[in-house]
Design a protein around this nucleic acid. Sequence first.
DNA 1: TGTACATCAGTGAACGCGCGTTCACTGATGTAC
DNA 2: TGTACATCAGTGAACGCGCGTTCACTGATGTAC
Lengths: 201, 201
Amino acid sequence: MKVSRAQAEENRRTVIAAASRLFRERGFDNVGLADLMGAAGLTHGGFYKQFASKDDLVNQACERALADSRDTWTRVLDEGQGEGRGKRGALEALVRRYLSPNHRDRIGDGCAFPTLGPDVVRRDDALRRTFDSGVKAQLAMLEGAMPDGAPEERRQAAMAAFATMVGGLLLSRLVEDDTLSRQLLDAAAAGVLGDTTKGRP
Amino acid sequence: MKVSRAQAEENRRTVIAAASRLFRERGFDNVGLADLMGAAGLTHGGFYKQFASKDDLVNQACERALADSRDTWTRVLDEGQGEGRGKRGALEALVRRYLSPNHRDRIGDGCAFPTLGPDVVRRDDALRRTFDSGVKAQLAMLEGAMPDGAPEERRQAAMAAFATMVGGLLLSRLVEDDTLSRQLLDAAAAGVLGDTTKGRP
DNA sequence: TGTACATCAGTGAACGCGCGTTCACTGATGTAC
DNA sequence: TGTACATCAGTGAACGCGCGTTCACTGATGTAC
């Protein structure tokens, strides 16, 4: 049976959104076409009416995930600057949200770099370019969010901060003890925001 | 044909060593039993004479990779302390080696956390415990390598440093421009070692 | 030390399963008159 | 506005392939005498 163009377009978007979540949760190889189409209430046979291949969907889903991530960062930075103490407050809001137990536990909605990064490194498709752009874009946002210093210093600080955030989230997911996991998140946040925030009582 | 016990034991070790490298290079799912046994010049049929399952080998290969990593850290810290400026020199040697283009490019020989970490997070086997122990062990080494501060401060600094190292390596592998990649490595190293090392000229 | 036999690491074919992809078909949608 | 027909999103079965796992078999090793 055919379906209206609007419905088909909505189905396509539903599949991409589900893929963007499922790939982060289970990895590219552990999500089948049947899972992906099933998320939109469809059967797997129609897949190739919407996408050229599984790799095509992988790429579109990752673009979606990275775009969502950028939107979240923009929103959090805006909110933090609005209610907080200027640029410093915005950066703090972003870092604390990124390095939170909530972000740690919601892998399917979270940042794609500490989740799919290594899988992408092993590829040589268009996906590498997608992530390359994604890193540059979020690095630029972080650079703009850095409150202090000359442009060159802020760029360097943004790179170190990004590394600490991505690595802190990844490590916090690798340890099983929740207390240690939170300590890792807090220590990483303190490392980014300056040790003055955390420290001796 | 049978083979001497010594030969069989050597074959087993060869397979584990090859697995430890291949899994890091291609991921667990993209290395078949035929590849693994072939690395020791064997056919895939004999696999189950040596290992209970593929997951069993995955776990043993990761234990090996993590143990090798610890050995490397120990050696680099010793060398750095010997020829360098005490504990400070040892930490610098470790961080600069970890965040080097060489480590970035040699994934098969490198740290397992930014390479296999996300794949491990998705599992719930014994492998999670293996990595949990691995994180704790290397964190303890880093804590011991921290030159300054009270124990609590050194522990927190070690956590932030570990996060920056793991994240910096991962990000450096995700960007395609070599110059930017090296800047990420250097910025991460500067973040760990204190911005005084790098900075304005 | 030499011989007879049990052991078992390794072989190579086969099995079963899930996966990405293809394809003939369906029937509501969208268009042309 | 109503009718006839082409389009094409979605269906469900089938294909081929690679993979982890199993198994009967081999023959050199290791052991018992």
